[in-house]
Design a protein around this nucleic acid. Structure first.
Length: 430
RNA sequence: GGAGACGUGGCCGAGUGGUCGAAGGCACACCCCUGCUAAGGGUGCAGGCGGGAAACCGCCUCGAGGGUUCGAAUCCCUUCGUCUCCGCCA
């Protein structure tokens, strides 16, 4: 959420930021609403202050036994009560209206973010690794002979419909190994704190991280009102929801492995083959809570943490700076990692690392007391995949595929696979 | 699921109708003393919103929502959460 004071102080900058996102100016509408709101608050509060004074006098009259004066004041207050209540209600309604409007406006990009309309305007920052030269036509993951026995979309469709998968045997174990490997790496080498969270959350949490109120149709909600998290960003970030934390506890660096649930509304027909885009998938997610000063540096650090996983697995990738038109709702700057998928002969997103600034913190009311005391300030939040497990599985399978239909597996995974080094053509680990 | 207790400031914890936004302690900030792996003394210190150049003033907030009352942290109702006991259960 945006700071109304910042908009008031510099409406041009606000509108310019929106324009970079391809949005029409909004400051005039916002400031008009804000002015109206403040006028009403003022009027209501003055009336209320008057009533409070009268009430005190009433008490004083009662105390000294002046019944006539007591009754006179009592009647006076009684008369104005409904009117003041109405004024307060009006002021509150406008306050809510402004708040509701602000909740729907996306974060503004940093100056360093490249301008652009869609993913074609994203800017490659760096590239790591060389796609392996193959002397056979590479297959997509679901067509690799060694993968087929352990990746069953038909059975999943029977169980749950489209965009689900049943993994079994060697493939299932590689999938699990990947999640464990990523967690261990972030915990042991990157110093993140392992954090396990619920996958069902209250609406307030979805509002806090920005999935609501605008993107409710992208997620699932239970009859009881809980939401299934589309990413552990929601739970990890909201761990500080409503809190005033000690500055000494920052930065808080968390990593969690969770199921993620997405309705994929609006992506009908896209990536329908294979397990690239599922309603349910696993992700190892990183979240950092920092102070205002260290947020941007943390973004670099987090990006490197994600890159380190791909490098350890020997998967070629490129790091891309998302342009203004391709960034998510809450981000001020986002770096995507795209992994090489030989079966698709292209790089595909496998991680997205975003610096959110205080945008989510305002929604969550999450603050810290600055060093040396003083007024609380909003924390800054960051989130990044480290990595999407299902997509990493795809990448490992496609990049490791051999001419004979087996798959060579990255050395760092061997200890997690009981020493196995390949997925055989028959789908078993060996 | 049944019964009971509780939910107060960054934290702990008093407070049962007005002078309470709230004692005391801890933490924190500044100052003094002292001197070294520590202590003592003093002062300050809830948050949000609105007004004001500022000093400062006002409004709201004692889990949340509603009610009673001239007046509610305090009484009533609803609701959420936590804890304890019982039941059940991975």
């Amino acid at each position: 959420m945006h700071d109304i004071r910042a908009i008031r102080e510099n409406p041009e900058a606000f509108d310019a930021g929106l324009a970079r996102r391809g949005l029409a100016p909004m400051s005039a509408e916002i400031l008009a609403l804000d002015a109206d709101r403040r006028a009403r608050i003022n009027a209501a509060e003055e009336a209320k202050a008057e009533q409070n004074r009268a009430s005190k006098e009433t008490g004083a009259a009662k105390a000294r036994g002046d019944e006539a004066e007591f009754e006179r004041l009592r009647a006076l207050i009684g008369d104005s009560k409904a009117q003041i209540a109405a004024m307060m209600a009006e002021a509150e309604a406008l306050d809510r209206q402004l708040n509701d409007l602000l909740m729907t406006i996306p974060n503004l990009p940093l100056d360093s973010v490249p301008d652009g309309e869609d993913e074609t305007d994203n800017v490659e920052i760096r590239r790591w690794g060389e796609p392996r030269a193959l002397d056979f036509p590479p297959l997509e993951h679901f067509d690799i002979p060694g993968v087929k026995p352990g990746m069953d979309f038909a059975t999943a469709a029977k169980l749950s419909g489209s965009r689900f998968v049943v993994l079994s045997g060697g493939v299932a174990r590689i999938h699990r190994a990947l999640a464990q490997f990523m967690l261990d790496m972030h915990i042991d080498k990157h110093g993140l704190t392992e954090t396990w969270t619920p996958v069902l959350v209250l609406s307030d949490m979805m509002l806090g991280t920005g999935q609501l109120p605008k993107f409710g149709e992208d997620s699932y909600q239970t009859r009881e009102g809980w939401w299934l998290i589309p990413t552990a960003e929601v739970t990890l970030t909201n761990t500080v929801h409503g809190d005033l934390v000690e500055h000494a506890t920052l930065p808080r660096r968390m990593v969690g492995h969770s199921q993620c649930f997405r309705s994929e509304a609006g992506s009908a027909g896209r990536d329908t083959s294979g397990m690239l885009r599922q309603h349910q998938f696993e992700k190892v997610e990183m979240v950092s809570i920092t102070d205002a000063e260290n947020g941007l540096a943390e973004h670099e650090r987090m990006t490197k943490c994600a890159e380190a996983v791909l490098e350890a697995l020997g998967l070629p990738y490129r790091t891309v700076a998302l342009c203004t038109g391709d960034m998510g709702f809450g981000a001020r700057i986002t770096h995507d990692l795209e992994v090489w998928l030989p079966g698709q002969d292209t790089y595909r997103e496998i991680s997205s690392v975003s610096y959110v600034g205080d945008f989510q913190a305002r929604r969550m009311n999450a603050r810290y007391r600055p060093e040396g005391g003083g007024k609380p300030e909003f924390v800054h939040t960051l989130n990044g995949s480290g990595l999407a497990v299902g997509r990493t599985l795809i990448a490992v399978l496609e990049n490791g595929q051999q001419a004979d239909g087996s798959v060579e597996l990255p050395a760092v995974l061997h200890p997690y696979l009981g020493g196995a080094i390949r997925l055989g053509r028959d789908g078993s680990l060996a």
